[in-house]
């Protein structure tokens, strides 16, 4: 799955992980995919949950080394 846009928010903690992910998604068109790279462990649960609450589809959540990669398709 190739992302249309990737945002690197390593170093960010909640709630800014979600704020920045949400803003990045707002810049995409409906149906496009955003890749979120983060390293704040609680965000791995919070960001996908918030994205789904907004109606977007979380495609995958993967651990890559010390970091996490989340793919979200914009509703």
């Amino acid at each position: 799955m190739k992302a249309d846009r990737s945002i690197d928010i390593r170093g960010e903690v909640c709630p800014y992980t979600f704020v920045k992910s949400k803003l990045a998604l707002e810049e995409l068109e409906s149906g496009q995919v955003l890749e979120i790279i983060l390293d704040h462990d609680p965000a791995v649960e919070n960001v996908p949950r918030s994205m789904e609450a907004d109606g977007h589809k979380v495609l995958s959540v993967k651990k890559v080394g010390k970091d996490w990669k989340i793919l979200v398709r914009k509703a």
Binding site: K2, A3, D4, S6, I7, D8, K20, E27
Partner: peptide
């Protein structure tokens, strides 16, 4: 990490 995602459109600039 960078190597793994090489070639993708990456941005550290904030949205908007």
């Amino acid at each position: 990490f960078e190597a793994r995602f090489l070639g993708q459109k990456r941005s550290t600039k904030n949205p908007f």
